[in-house]
Every structure is written in structure tokens, then in C-alpha cells.
Computed example of a mutant assay.
Amino acid sequence: MKILCIADEENKGLWDHFKKEKLEGIDLILSAGDLNPDYLQFLVTMGKAPVLYVHGNHDESYSFKPPLGCECIEDKVYDFKGLRILGLGGAPWYKPGKFMFTEEEMRKRVQKVKKDIFLKNGFDILLTHAPIRGYGDMDDPAHRGFLAFEELVQKYRPKYMVHGHVHANYGSAFKRELVHSAGTKIVNAYDKAILELEEQEYPKEGKTGSFLYDLYKQVTAKKEQRRFHD
């Protein structure tokens, strides 16, 4: 599976100078926040891949102008053909804002989503706006990461984490890729980055190992097949 990851700055080659072949072969687009909603809407319209997104700290306009045709996956585990993606957007609080959270507030969000993690027997990608504290973040209050993500990654050990918030023009602070001590590959999606996943890196659809969820997926698939044939 080929995934286009985007965050923080609209890529000119995918918008101002767009050519359709630039999205060929892309199966899924993940937005880690702080992007013009028109940009996400453009990508989902011009390409064949769905767009999943979380909010950045500057995405308050999404409240009255969400990117049409795109799916917000905040505070849940989204199943895309077996690939399980957990969305937790926003940034650490440094000033008032809808998508700004204290460490305690983010811990509460993580706690609430654990039911969905349990139901789907884990997750394969953690999609956030802010980084993990100590992995690709900065020391200033505006660009530090969340300690709550550290605990989440240590416990569930997803294959990948995709985030934004720290830009390439911040010099040596910007790291495109890092590997967490838990083995999770961390990707900064600033501008754009490509993830290519092998089939064995995530479960087949309906094969998560969670009895209830897999049964639900199998029943739903059979209903869809019957409806298609009818």
C-alpha cells in the first residue's frame, strides 16, 4: 500500500502545478494538519485515494469549512482495508485555541480511545499533528511534543507514526524520519512524504484477531455482497 502523507505546507507540485500522474499509485492520503481545507478537497477530487485527516493547531477554519469528501479520524481507530489508523490531532497548549491541549487533556483523549483500540486489537499507524515528546519536537512551548504519545507508542507499538507541526525550515530540529525505542518508525509529513507498506505489515481486512470486530466486518461484507448482487 502506498500512502501519501502531508502536513503544514501545501505542496506546489500537488496543487499549483498539479498533474494527475503525480497521484498515480497512491492508495491513501493522510493529512497531519495545518493545511488549507481546499487543498485536501482538491486532492480527494483529483485523485482516486481517500483522504483521512486530523486537525493541526491552526485548523479552526475546518469548523465552518471542512474539506468536503474527506474523513476526519479524530479520537478513533479508522479501518482502511485492514490498515488501522488512530487519529489524535492538535498541539500542546501554548495559547487559547480549539485544537490546543494540555498534557492532561491529551491523556484523557488517549484514555477514551482505548476502547476502540481494544475493539480493533491495536493500531498500525498513529496519525497526529504534534510529535512525541523527545522525538522530532523542539524545546519551545509552541513546538514541543506530547508525553502521552510516548506511553501510547510504548504500550501498543504501532508500525508507524505520522505527524507534522515541526517544519523543515526549523533547521536541524527537522527530522524526516526517526525510529522510536519501541520500534515505531516516525515520519514527519511536512510538505509531503511517502509511506510504502508491505501486505504483511498490517492485518487483512476482517483479520485483526479481535473476535467481535472481525465478526462484525465479516457480517458487514456479506451484507454488501448480497446488496451488490441484488
Rank of each mutant, 00 (worst) to 15 (best):
residue 170 Y to E: 10
residue 178 L to F: 04
residue 180 H to M: 03
residue 152 L to C: 02
residue 189 A to F: 08
residue 92 P to T: 03
residue 196 E to N: 13
residue 93 W to G: 01
residue 116 D to F: 08
residue 194 I to L: 15
residue 185 K to D: 02
residue 165 H to R: 02
residue 203 P to M: 14
residue 205 E to S: 12
residue 215 L to Q: 10
residue 77 V to E: 03
residue 81 K to V: 00
residue 158 P to H: 04
residue 173 A to K: 02
residue 103 E to P: 00
residue 165 H to Y: 03
residue 213 Y to I: 14
residue 214 D to M: 08
residue 216 Y to C: 05
residue 213 Y to Q: 13
residue 130 A to W: 06
residue 84 R to Q: 11
residue 203 P to E: 13
residue 149 F to Y: 13
residue 172 S to F: 10
residue 146 F to A: 04
residue 189 A to Q: 05
residue 215 L to M: 14
residue 152 L to V: 02
residue 81 K to Q: 07
residue 102 T to L: 06
residue 92 P to S: 07
residue 160 Y to A: 05
residue 181 S to R: 15
residue 127 L to Q: 09
residue 156 Y to S: 08
residue 149 F to Q: 01
residue 121 N to W: 07
residue 84 R to K: 15
residue 210 S to E: 15
residue 118 F to N: 11
residue 99 F to P: 00
residue 144 R to G: 02
residue 89 G to Y: 01
residue 120 K to N: 11
residue 80 F to W: 12
residue 153 V to R: 01
residue 182 A to M: 09
residue 138 M to Q: 14
residue 165 H to M: 00
residue 175 K to S: 09
residue 150 E to I: 06
residue 196 E to R: 13
residue 129 H to K: 10
residue 129 H to A: 01
residue 126 L to S: 05
residue 186 I to L: 12
residue 110 V to K: 02
residue 185 K to E: 11
residue 180 H to C: 03
residue 127 L to D: 06
residue 207 K to N: 11
residue 206 G to E: 13
residue 106 M to G: 03
residue 86 L to A: 07
residue 109 R to C: 05
residue 182 A to H: 08
residue 156 Y to H: 15
residue 89 G to W: 00
residue 146 F to Q: 03
residue 97 G to Q: 04
residue 102 T to R: 12
residue 127 L to T: 06
residue 102 T to Q: 09
residue 197 L to P: 07
residue 152 L to N: 01
residue 189 A to T: 05
residue 86 L to N: 04
residue 133 R to Q: 06
residue 190 Y to K: 03
residue 185 K to I: 13
residue 144 R to L: 03
residue 103 E to W: 02
residue 110 V to W: 01
residue 120 K to D: 12
residue 165 H to C: 02
residue 112 K to V: 12
residue 121 N to P: 07
residue 156 Y to P: 00
residue 96 P to Q: 10
residue 207 K to V: 12
residue 216 Y to M: 15
residue 99 F to T: 07
residue 86 L to C: 07
